[in-house]
Design a protein around this nucleic acid. Sequence first.
RNA 1: GGAGUCUUAGCUCAAUUGGUUAGAGCGCCGCCCUGUCACGGCGGAGGUUGCGGGUUCGAGCCCCGUAGACUCCGCCA
Length: 590
Amino acid sequence: MYRTHHCNELRKRHIGQQVTLAGWVHVSRDHGGVIFIDLRDREGLTQVVFRPEENAELAKQSHSLRSEDVIRVTGKVAPRVAGTGNPKLATGDIELLPSELEILNRAADLPFPLDTEISNEDLRLTYRYFDLRRPRFARNLRLRHQAAKATRDYLDGQGYIEVETPILSKSTPEGARDFLVPSRLAPGKFYALPQAPQQYKQLLMVAGVEKYFQIAKCFRDEDLRADRQPEFTQIDIESSFAEPDDIFALTEGMLAAVFKATRKIEIKTPFERLTYREAVGRYGSDKPDRRFRMELVDFGEDFKSSSFKVFRGALDAGGVVKAINAKGFASLTIGQSDELTEIAKNFGAKGLAFIKVENGEWKSPIVKFFTAEEKAALQSKLEVAEGDLILFAADKWDIACEVLGRLRLRIAEYQKLLEGNEQLDFLWVTDFPLLQWSAEDNKWNAVHHPFTRPKTEDVPLLDAQKFGEVRAEAYDVVLNGVEIGGGSIRIHEPELQEKMFGVLGVNAEEQQVMFGHLLRAFRLGAPPHGGIALGLDRLVMLICGEQSIRDVMAFPKNNRGIDLMSQSPADVDQRQLRDLGIKLAGEKNA
RNA sequence: GGAGUCUUAGCUCAAUUGGUUAGAGCGCCGCCCUGUCACGGCGGAGGUUGCGGGUUCGAGCCCCGUAGACUCCGCCA
């Protein structure tokens, strides 16, 4: 046996035993005579003590040990000298007095220290295998494993079977940009890496699998963010003969199992539900963070005959007047005020109207336009008090809501409303719109995806071409303001699917070329079905309390999609390109 | 594609209004140190201040450009 115990195992009861440990030199404290080594493995630390009077030869050797050298020591477990125990260490009551020392591998000078946090992410990603030795990452990787295992165990218990679907797949229009893989056997043709196993899982429903899941790698060639990587992992689930309530209950049970396995906590189920209209109307977001209030309040009725033209104009044009009360934030700085105005403009507002309540006075350039009744309405609905900051948005519903929603989040950050907050606020957002007008493409696009089922009662709206009003049988699950998953009941009838493609501007011929397999499948007895996909990375990020999914992936890419460790993407050999029938279109500087 | 912040020793940071030879801690090297646990003490090496240009008697600091990193917007069915 290479070792008899790990480094977080030895206790008082082992005193006197002969043991062998292996691991990394975490730190060495060399007193010239006696030398202390904290030996580390993934489980923890054990102090190893070399004493010249016990073994002069070994002690001499031990002076050369440096941080991160890999060693094996064999010796006797001994009690610590009275009064020198270390209560901070689980193994702090004992130490190892070695009779053998084997240096398995020396470590060169370290690129950065492991015992302090460093901010240079470039360097950390370049030496990712080294950075991962930090206990924080050891913990994150382990939590990720436990989350995945709990997911599999739970779904297995519910009768779901894991089926793998192809990574070499087919490019589809709409959605994210695909990663393409050139085909050697069919020159000029390309596979695409799946953005999600969406079509395959629906075809598995047609295949009679009934209950499918997969912890699936997905690929999207879009710009990166703290919570977006070009390759990421979804918990992908699909069930035949399922209604939304079935998917909700399954997801809730699964998340409960995951949080139990990882954080050892019971989460409250079922989750609350909000419709899309409610969520956006009250929080200015379809993934509301409800851990603080600052809700959007509607003042349409109160200002419908206002003499303040900005509000009146918005209402007359069919828009809304809404406000939030940032309690106690009247003292914001000029810089903060400027940034809030900037945010408002960024999301489509023409300006940002506000009231500061200071010294019992409403300080604002617009208060003079308000009647006593209007002021009274603001006062009571917003519970205005000394020190408050009221912010207004008067615009089309979606713009006003988004502006205030974004301001709400930024102000919460300024005010540190979530500092130390341990709450887990899960909710469902339901009844998403089915379609969204794209000015850029000059057509209607699917909000979720083209296979999403319209709500049955809204199908007449679809026929009446009132596309903006059609609601989808689609839902998102949100945790603390982060969308951790989304899904829908799907279309299983070929006629409805063709109609949907038609609305999306995919003509009959294109439908056959791109989705013929799916439409043919639907003609061979496709059961009603629906499902959900959860972002495993984001979920684990929240479980670990991290700010970025990079911190819960073993080998993430940087902001520009580059793996700094392996330097990919990289040039390829000309011969490889020739095999694929690919010629690069002009070198950049040629 | 756009906006913001940042870039000084291997790492984390400092350097007054633009002013002498750019400093400190950690790490590294050498010497000393027998109960530490962020061990301690003495000494040493280590810098084209991201890069290019400009203003100035003089630039780490001001200006312009450029590269890179991160965060956000666009984008992400």
